[in-house]
Amino acid sequence: MSVGYVVKKSVVSTSLLALATAFEMVSKSDPELKKEIADWEDGRTFSMGVLPEGPAITLKKEGDRVVYMGKGIKNPKLTIYFKNVDAALLPLAGMMGAHTAFIQHRAILHGNIAEAMQTNRALAIVQNYLLPGIILKGITKRPPKMNASQLMLKAKVMALLGAGLAKNMIK
């Protein structure tokens, strides 16, 4: 395995974990995300991963928030697969919007499309907390407008992300 591939796989793996960690953190406090997931049935599980057997994460709705279930595809109702590590790299590293990943055939969906749309909207909200506004402006159809409390939450997410990552790494 080349060094380049190992590096790319590590970036993808870490980015997925960061997304999962941020999802947990943001779902605890952001009203917009809470509203988005309010209609999801309790226990809804979804995964994101890289084909054929690359890095993957599984998340689950529990109560009014989303929790990280651990690495790998764990019997999800819905899975977003990236076709390969290269396909996953740009969207997960925040250099490409989720919609562009689908438009460019980088990602495919296994499961119900309506639920995938809901998941994508939720992921987009989480991404708003992970990426700087200037990057979001370039990769989203419509850049988010965050209010003061959301900006404070963003600062908190950024400050605590490292600790959250360390905790989730052992899951």
């Binding site: 919609h99 689908f102 438009i103 499309i113 309506a114 995938a116 749309m117 809901q118 994508n120 909207r121």
Partner: peptide
């Protein structure tokens, strides 16, 4: 229903 339709992505 419309915002949960896959075509909205495109």
């Amino acid at each position: 229903g419309a915002i949960n339709d896959g075509a909205a992505t495109y």
